[in-house]
Write a protein that binds this DNA or RNA. Sequence first.
DNA 1: GATGAATGAGAATTCATTCAT
DNA 2: TATGAATGAATTCTCATTCAT
Lengths: 199, 199, 199, 199
Amino acid sequence: MPKIVDKAQMRSDIIDAALRVFMQKGFGATSMNDIAKEAHVAKGTLYLYFDSKEDLLNEIAHKHFEQLRHKFMCETPCNTLKTFLACLEKTLLLTKEERHAVRMFFEVFGFNFESRQFIHTYRIFSKDIISGYTQILECLQKNGEIASTVNPQSESEILFMMLNGMMMHESFFTTNTMVIHATIQHYIGKGLLQDDQPA
Amino acid sequence: MPKIVDKAQMRSDIIDAALRVFMQKGFGATSMNDIAKEAHVAKGTLYLYFDSKEDLLNEIAHKHFEQLRHKFMCETPCNTLKTFLACLEKTLLLTKEERHAVRMFFEVFGFNFESRQFIHTYRIFSKDIISGYTQILECLQKNGEIASTVNPQSESEILFMMLNGMMMHESFFTTNTMVIHATIQHYIGKGLLQDDQPA
Amino acid sequence: MPKIVDKAQMRSDIIDAALRVFMQKGFGATSMNDIAKEAHVAKGTLYLYFDSKEDLLNEIAHKHFEQLRHKFMCETPCNTLKTFLACLEKTLLLTKEERHAVRMFFEVFGFNFESRQFIHTYRIFSKDIISGYTQILECLQKNGEIASTVNPQSESEILFMMLNGMMMHESFFTTNTMVIHATIQHYIGKGLLQDDQPA
Amino acid sequence: MPKIVDKAQMRSDIIDAALRVFMQKGFGATSMNDIAKEAHVAKGTLYLYFDSKEDLLNEIAHKHFEQLRHKFMCETPCNTLKTFLACLEKTLLLTKEERHAVRMFFEVFGFNFESRQFIHTYRIFSKDIISGYTQILECLQKNGEIASTVNPQSESEILFMMLNGMMMHESFFTTNTMVIHATIQHYIGKGLLQDDQPA
DNA sequence: GATGAATGAGAATTCATTCAT
DNA sequence: TATGAATGAATTCTCATTCAT
């Protein structure tokens, strides 16, 4: 009679443990041994749930992006421009832990660079966020809150890039809250209101 | 007398060789052995020119940032807003090789995360670029080309973050040239002209 | 369940293997690789049982001293002067293998000179032997077998030094058995009987 | 016209430099590079004067024993028992530096254990010291200062062993001066005076 | 003779992965 | 299923020795 185990739960537990160790020791210094210890399972057990370290890493990246997704996503798909801008602003207000996590992201990123799976995961994530923003912008445009000349698709792409850049910057330099506020309100907000959008 | 060698040249050659291997194999998969082979020297020779792998890595990062600096810097310190925006736009037009280099930069970044030297190098780089932009903006402001309400210092910081975000994005997705053009002209250009700057 | 292994036994086996290689190749020429081969385990396995080469070395030194201790210790803690002298004599009668071991001891000694752990082990060993002799001498003195003027403590120290010297000498030159006998009986034995001990 | 160099002087200078580095860094941590630097010559130059590291080491051992010889030898080949004992005592009074040197001796010793040349050098040294003592004892015996039953040859060997043991011990534990004095006077002195020598 | 840059075999150590239990 | 002992290839770094200048 085999032990009944919730495979998905186990995978999830292992991934959480791995993330915890990464946070503490840094990615480069973390071995399968460390992960096994943190997850309170034997090293060999990891291989029952993940084919290889790379596989585990890909899952971790996946989970990491899931968490980032929550950071980026605005729950209320469409409301007012004001709430949307507030949502973007909130995205950029990182706790000390989140800043650490962003930096760790680059570590993980670096290590996985050659992994097609990882690149794939990243692309999916980007597209999801961008299309989420697109939906919101289309809705705001329908409601007449933003200029009709705005192209929701490319505008969303720009938003995503900028948020990425700001988030990266903040994770290293702890940008002033006022600067973030001003940037969002002035650059993003004003930009969306104008009539003279470029083609 | 022993062989006379241009030490600086040798260091430079080794760094170039290392960058070449990184480009091919990815940073994480590159060993000192690989670098030695690519540089056509013996493993031990590397240690005549660099104290350790970390030392070599730091130099590579340094060189990398030097190249990035040229990408970011606008030669004409002050001219017209038009030339400045053109310069920013040029910064974001990456060749295929440059895109690869930016991605590699994140790999190196990740690996070096715990290295104080690396963080230091990155900060210096950031500050240099930002203060370069600040000078230009101050100049443009003096010439009446941009709104008097603009704060050159914080504006430069924002510019840097945005360019970083765009560059990162582009290195993964090969952003449309038109989008870049539009972004620069619309967001940056228009923003700088407005009178109703936030505090 | 993984393979069940007697950890202590394994450590002991590895140490024995290491001692064997040292005997054959000399200490200086022995690498972890050699030890692993002799112990019929993989290199990495050594590190499951010992933290580092130094750790292994310390254990070896420890074991070595344990064996030496048996050589030096006189089982019958107190009896007659005659049996004590016989015990000392026996200590100095080295088999060919023991002579080799003594020489090897100096090799190990040399290599470990900077190791506090090793020095510590050596001091403990010395003190144990010396205090063992002290007890015996006190007992013999109580029984009136040796002069009341003898200071058991300093006398023991002298004994230890002399035995060390003789043992070292013998390991190199295979001292004549008669010389050992004469030395013990004459110098040690007579010295202990005399009344005119120095302060 | 080749540069005229005193080969013997150069060898001697290099050996002195090597000994100096050994004292500072310990034997195990000293490389040919270190020796070259300390001797103010290039690494390659060492190989003009010594065939190999082992060759250099043998010469160093040789020189080391020469210095020890001075420590052990009693200048006045024959005088009174009193001066002889005083000489032996002086041999054992080690300065802090000499104690260090004795310990270093074991380091060097260990490293050279497999070298026939080294063993040879050590044997020569021993025999020289022992025969030096033998001459003195014969002389003292002739003068009626010591018992006629003493066998100068084996007595000298015993002396040498004991001094070795004491010296080794002292280098580690800084034996009390009084203990040394007592040992020499009581064990050695008294022993030489007695009539009932063993065969 | 003298130099020191270059070499490359070899050292200690790590760690993803396997497999007998 | 789960374990963790065992593996051995791979890594960074050292250093005695060589040799072109």
